[in-house]
Design a protein around this nucleic acid. Structure first.
Length: 568
DNA sequence: CAAGTGACTTGCCCTGACCTGG
DNA sequence: CCAGGTCAGGGCAAGTCACTTG
């Protein structure tokens, strides 16, 4: 019954004036719990002597003490930033006394927190249940809002607690104090005719506004980068789902005109104008390698990372010949989240010659594409196709790769084997997008455990086979019904063990191949879920094998829409 | 245009709840 | 029942991109 389906509802409810909702009511955010001073017996020592800290100074000290086991606290920049910000919270007396972080001893505090977390783990079932219930109550009260005619789950209704900023990679601001957010910092967004959220007793909101051109419910400005943080809805909400759907529809429109665009940029490699050649080579990289756009960043404010448009001379090396390949480009740079991108690829001669040209008379730290930035590139893309931006290529190439790989890899085999194929297709996309993860700390061990299980299963199998053989021999000798039955039983047993063994082996392969690759990001953000839904329907795979509960909620629209013949 | 602002998506990591096997 | 392992979900940092401002 299409009448009932989600996208029909969406079509009906879409506003044409850029407004995102008519009615919005919520309870406001949940604030971080207030600071609880340390018990008197837990001491901070300066220069070997115990020292009682003022509440504010103590609170900031505990942030550091909690992280003592972390590598961060050994880093110079982290320590320097922390100490500077900590001193700002000290009384003048403390400030004059505490002048050297190396003389600070937080270990008692650190042990106290460790003991606390240990105690939390040791809590009785009843105590744990009570906490769970309290969390559930908070979720029910603050975790939902009404947007237009729907009750929707809020994504993050808790305000971030104060603490020490941990940037990724070589971040110049690591260790700085993230200050506590108060009601006076919060802007509330809701509709005029709703019941407005109440600030905690004795406090005020910074502002209450009624802006239905945006989707957020509350916002505040954080003090590290001065950027705005938002409270928004959960991915399962209409407003997020609809946007997600649109994203994939844009990518599908790119599919229709990608040949034209590719021909265009290949032509542009020959342009008389440098800026056009640069634009064309950059677009080629974005398309072929799924690189990110690469906005400029403020130097010294963040870690030094780049994307396509911000690549520097030092990030690529050119090899006219390498092994048996010609015109090889070697990329080596830190991308988003300071994840290393390393790749060697052969390119077309024209691209290679252009790159040589771009490199002429430049220093390693100069921009590779000095006549290009993301704004220029996206303006160009917008002219090529309505709604086209650099990141659409990532979405398009990721989704089309999944679809192709599924066609290629799906075997006429058992369900576990099919799921391995799915994971491999997913993995191809993750590799394309360079989605990496740190190998899990328990990786080696868990591989070993799995291997042990496989060995055991193999022993079981040979034992079962022996028994089957014996039973067959027995039957040959006696030819009676009873022995015939015994053979059948043994045969079944062998079959079952074989299946179990196969399952374990598939699992081991999958895990090994996945050691340093993160599948989650592409699954959640780049792969048109309708491709996966269609694949499940086509091969009779239960959707639960591919998407867990949260993912099924996020992709409810796709599960509702896609039939087995869906084509991206 | 350059720089700044705002809104929204994408990304990796950690924690703690849950599950399983001994 | 407990210890150990796994995995979902939360947390929040770091991108993209449109738009405004000078």
């Amino acid at each position: 019954l299409k009448y009932n389906s989600i996208h029909v509802l969406w079509e009906e409810e879409r506003y044409t004036d850029g407004s995102k909702w008519r009615f919005l009511e919520h309870k406001g955010p949940v604030f971080a719990p207030p600071y609880e001073p340390l018990p008197g017996n837990v001491k901070f020592y300066y220069d070997g002597k115990p020292m009682k800290l003022s509440a504010l100074a103590e609170e900031v000290a505990t942030f550091f003490a909690k992280m003592l086991d972390h590598e961060y606290t050994t880093k110079d920049i982290f320590r320097k930033n922390f100490f500077k910000d900590w001193r700002k919270e000290m009384t003048s007396e403390e400030k004059s006394k505490i002048t050297d972080l190396n003389k600070c001893n937080f270990s008692e505090m650190n042990e106290y927190f460790k003991a606390q977390s240990e105690a939390r783990k040791q809590m009785s079932k009843e105590e744990k249940q009570k906490i769970k219930e309290e969390n559930e109550r908070l979720l029910q009260e603050y975790g939902f809002c009404i947007m237009d005619n729907h009750k929707e789950r809020i994504g993050n209704f808790r305000i971030e607690p104060p603490g020490l900023f941990r940037g990724r990679g070589d971040h110049p601001k690591m260790g700085m104090l993230k200050r506590r957010i108060r009601p006076e910092d919060i802007i509330i967004n809701c509709s005029k005719d709703s019941k407005h959220p109440k600030p905690p007793p004795g406090t005020k909101w910074k502002e209450v506004r009624h802006d239905n051109k945006v989707t957020w419910l509350a916002s505040w400005t954080e003090n590290i980068q001065g950027s705005i943080k938002y409270i928004m809805l959960n991915p399962s909400s209409r407003i997020k789902g609809e946007k997600d759907w649109q994203k994939y529809e844009t990518a599908r429109r790119l599919k229709k005109c990608v040949d034209r665009i590719r021909n265009q940029y290949r032509d542009d490699w020959k342009s008389k104008e440098m800026r056009i050649r640069q634009r064309a080579v950059a677009l080629y990289f974005i398309d072929k390698l799924a690189l990110r756009a690469g906005n400029e960043k403020e130097e010294g404010e963040t870690a030094d990372t780049v994307g396509c448009c911000s690549l520097r001379v030092e990030h690529i090396k050119l090899y006219p010949k390498m092994d048996d390949q010609e015109y090889v480009v070697e990329f080596d740079f830190l991308g988003k989240d300071s994840i290393r991108y390393y790749n060697k690829i052969p390119v077309e001669k024209r691209v290679f010659k252009n790159l040589q040209l771009f490199l002429e008379n430049k220093q390693p730290e100069d921009d590779l594409f000095d006549r290009l930035n993301t704004s220029i590139l996206n303006k160009h893309l917008q002219e090529l196709m309505d709604g086209l931006t650099a990141k659409v290529f990532r979405t398009y190439n990721a989704s089309i790769t999944l679809q192709q790989q599924l066609k290629e890899l799906t075997s006429d085999d058992s369900i576990p084997a099919k799921i391995l194929s799915y994971n491999r297709a997913n993995r191809a996309v993750a590799i394309l997008c360079n989605h990496q993860r740190a190998p899990p700390k328990t990786f080696e061990k868990s591989m070993q455990n799995l291997q042990t299980k496989i060995d055991e299963k193999q022993n079981q199998l040979s034992a079962a086979r022996k028994q089957l053989k014996a039973a067959k021999a027995d039957h040959k000798a006696s030819h009676d019904e009873k022995s015939k039955k015994a053979v059948e039983v043994k045969r079944k047993a062998v079959q079952r063990i074989e299946e179990q063994l196969m399952k374990l082996q598939v699992q081991a392969t999958d895990r090994e191949e996945n050691k340093q690759i993160a599948l989650g990001t592409s699954k959640l953000n780049y792969l048109d879920p309708r491709i996966s839904v269609a694949w499940c329907k086509k091969y009779g795979i239960p959707i639960e094998k591919i998407y867990n509960k949260t993912q099924r909620e996020k992709f409810a629209w796709a599960i509702d829409m896609a039939e087995k013949d869906y084509e991206f």
